[in-house]
Amino acid sequence: MHVGTGASIAFWIMAVVAVVSASGVILLKDIFRAALLLVVSFLSIAGIFVTLNADFIAAVQVLIYAGAISILLIFAILLTRDVQEGNPSNRLKIPGMFMGAVLLTALIVVFVNTEWRLSTEAPLDSTTAALADLLFSNKFVLAFEIASVLLLAAMIGAVVLARGEDE
């Protein structure tokens, strides 16, 4: 990886912002503010993709996650919010915290103890053209077409489910 100290500083700033806003999403009482913090988290993750030289996926992250998915979530929150019931935890709070801590410890131990075979090649300057070549090559074009069918099926299913059978 040929990145300067600037990219490194940007990575750490955005990592801290992502983790802080993600904890806010999990811990805040107000669901609407939690959704807005989730957008902050998505945007800083897009910044992390930029520091990793993955330009196309960063643009997709901003367009789909920070744009479409967060709008959909906020729309659903506004339609279903009990006046100020807030965001109570259920009785699994302590076991949930325990499970999260155990998973985090296990993952960090694995990451530290694994010998990564780092590639010596420099990453591509722009991944977009290479990704398009690969996505429409014989390897992935079938999966790409099936993904569009999946989206169509999900769209029809969502319309049918949300409309209900009584109309």
Binding site: V19, I77, T80, I108
Partner: peptide, 30 residues
């Protein structure tokens, strides 16, 4: 230079936070 491990640590922290949220929240949207 960003080490690979740091990026993996970040994603592990985010994943654990998400796991805690899935287990501990009551609201379906949360």
């Amino acid at each position: 230079m960003i080490e690979l491990e740091y990026v993996l640590f970040l994603s592990a922290v985010l994943f654990s936070l998400g796991l805690f949220g899935v287990l501990a929240r009551r609201n379906a949207v949360m």
